[in-house]
Amino acid sequence: MDSHTLIIPALGVFVGILMGLTGAGGGILSVPILVFFVHLPMAEASPIALCAIALSATAGAIIGLKEKILRYKAAIFMSIFGLIMSPIGLWVANKVPNMPLLLLFSVILIFVSVRLYIQAHKTIHGTLPPSPTPPPCQLDLSISKLIWTMPCARSLMYAGLTAGFLSGLLGVGGGFVIVPSLKKFTDLPMKSIVATSLGVLAIVSTGGALVSLASGNLNVEIASLFALGSLVGLVFGKLMERKISGTRVQQIFAIFAFLVALSLIYKAV
């Protein structure tokens, strides 16, 4: 543990910066970073990642709430369904061997990174096609609130269920599900999507971390160092958010995530 005293917080800072900039990237990279650099098995890395995501996402959500860009009703609604599925994902994670989990994580990471890169590339070059139909969740500009309908609630429910299960199974927080879902199902601006995603991650990840702590599957010492580092990183990420192009950050993150996924496949095989 002594040799990791500086490495673990530094890795946490890196994860926190990505979370602050993207609302998702840091969460999905937490587990592979812990597996690759700290040599932890997936089942042990996942609860530690959830602690870091919970702490830094809570800070980010509070910032978004103060700036009035966090759609807290949507965040709470998705979180309810995420909390239902998160313990199920944690239970499955403890029953599945390490290699299949690593391979599954790598495949998901490759899919997310490729999709994110393509979307960012199209946005930069102005070739992203407009949606043929309006999203089910639309913002009422007169009151600055989402208009709730059955299709809107159903879409957000499915996003919450998926994010919750993957959060427990892989320790990823679920931001990589929440952010694309909010992009697809709402017409919220990107900063509001990031803040709302962090709100969902704060609640769902906290629930998953508490379940892990209660079941004795959480390494508290490593989790504390990693979580504090991620909190510091998130503050830096929020300060950098106004100065760095979000689409360029997404491209860099996508390339990095793709390389991490290949490294995990090599490590698993």
Rank of each mutant, 00 (worst) to 15 (best):
L103D: 02
T58G: 04
P87A: 05
E67D: 13
S106I: 06
A54I: 01
A54D: 06
I62G: 02
N94I: 13
K73M: 10
V96H: 11
S79Q: 03
A93Q: 05
K68Y: 08
I76Q: 10
P87T: 11
A75T: 02
S106D: 13
K73C: 08
L103H: 08
N94F: 13
L55K: 02
F77T: 00
L102Q: 11
P97N: 14
Y72Q: 04
S56T: 04
S86C: 12
G89R: 06
A57M: 06
P97G: 13
I88M: 11
K95N: 15
A59V: 07
N98L: 05
K73S: 08
R71K: 14
I69S: 08
F77Q: 01
M99H: 13
F77Y: 10
G64P: 03
V92R: 06
L55I: 09
L102H: 07
F105C: 10
R71H: 14
L55A: 05
I63Y: 11
F77V: 03
P87V: 05
I69T: 15
W91C: 10
K95C: 15
V96P: 08
I76E: 08
S86E: 03
G60C: 07
L55F: 03
L90H: 01
L65K: 08
V92L: 12
I62F: 05
F81V: 07
N94L: 12
V96E: 13
G89M: 09
L101H: 02
L101Q: 01
K73F: 14
L65G: 01
R71I: 09
I69P: 05
P97I: 14
G60Q: 00
V92I: 15
S86W: 00
V96W: 14
I88H: 01
G60E: 00
M99N: 12
I62Q: 03
I69K: 09
L83Q: 10
F105G: 02
L70S: 04
N98Q: 11
I53F: 04
R71A: 09
I62S: 01
A59G: 08
N98A: 07
F81W: 06
N94V: 13
A59C: 11
